[in-house]
Amino acid sequence: MDSLDPLHELESELEKQIRREGVGEYDGHEIAMDLSDGFLYMYSANAETLFKAVKPTLEKSKFMKGAVARLRFGPPEEGIKEIEVKLQE
Rank of each mutant, 00 (worst) to 15 (best):
M1T: 15
D2L: 04
S3A: 11
L7Y: 14
L7R: 06
L7N: 11
L7H: 14
S12G: 03
E13A: 05
K16V: 01
Q17C: 07
R19H: 06
G22C: 12
V23E: 01
Y26T: 00
Y26M: 01
Y26F: 06
G28E: 01
A32E: 04
D34C: 09
D34W: 01
D34F: 04
S36V: 04
D37F: 02
G38D: 03
F39V: 07
F39R: 11
F39W: 07
L40G: 03
L40Y: 04
M42R: 00
Y43W: 04
N46W: 06
A47R: 12
E48M: 07
T49N: 04
T49D: 05
F51E: 03
K52F: 06
A53C: 06
T57F: 02
L58T: 09
E59Y: 14
K60N: 11
K62I: 08
F63I: 10
M64N: 11
G66W: 10
G66C: 13
A67V: 14
V68Q: 09
R72N: 12
G74Y: 15
P75G: 06
P75S: 10
E77P: 10
E78C: 08
G79Y: 08
I80H: 05
K81E: 03
K81A: 08
E82N: 03
E82W: 07
I83H: 13
I83C: 05
E84A: 11
K86N: 13
Q88H: 04
E89Q: 11
E89I: 15
